[in-house]
Write a protein that binds this DNA or RNA. Structure first.
Lengths: 104, 104
DNA sequence: ACAACAGATAAGCACACACTTATGTATTGC
DNA sequence: GCAATACATAAGTGTGTGCTTATCTGTTGT
């Protein structure tokens, strides 16, 4: 199961912060670092974990590697969440917005 | 943030299995155990983690404690997911179904 | 009251994980 | 070619986590 990798990846606050930063737009590893007080190897390791969880994907661009949010990971979480729709509260505004967007 | 507790709770495969079992209906700790090859203290500890993450809630019933899925936790995940709706793939069947449910 | 039962808590242990420093591998510009 | 840059990997270390056994609390039935 890849759920294991996804939830493990998101269990770390630093990785969630990285993911959140990437949600603002694609970025290379160095740009991700500034303002984050994290060593270069640590960043590299975190990005590897996020990639393996399919939350982030990479694209080499010469000497740089650009990282961006991978929709596959989000879809997997959505799929997991959907299994428990019987227990959803009647109204979740955030989700209603989300789902309306998808319905066009 | 409670996202930390939620994702940490779901990062463990045993806890996800417990949660999945609870999704089929409320159950006490002993009933949850059978067929799971897990010690009584381990189950108790896992349930405590799930409760603190608001994924599960408990209700004492005499000598037993019944556990059930807590919608609050699912709502928190949905809220987290909604923040990244810009990156969702165009079609996710599971969520389209969900949308139809909510539109009624 | 007391034994049986349901569950929580305590303490200890083995392993996973996030970090570090050091080094390796590509790619770019001079 | 060669130094500098961007990033990955290796190896070691401290802490967190999930398990265990042992014990404790609280409830039920006799």
């Amino acid at each position: 199961m890849m759920e294991a990798e996804i939830f493990k990846a998101l269990a770390d606050p630093t990785r969630r912060a990285i993911f959140e930063k990437l949600a603002d737009g694609r970025m290379n590893a160095s740009s991700l670092r500034d303002g984050m007080d994290i060593s270069q190897p640590a960043m590299s390791q975190h990005l590897a974990v996020l990639c393996q969880a399919k939350l982030v994907r990479q694209e080499r661009q010469g000497r740089f590697v650009n990282y961006e949010v991978d929709p596959d990971g989000l879809a997997l979480i959505a799929g997991w969440l959907a299994k428990y729709r019987a227990y959803w509260p009647a109204r979740i505004d955030a989700l209603k917005t989300l789902l309306k967007d998808m319905d066009q």
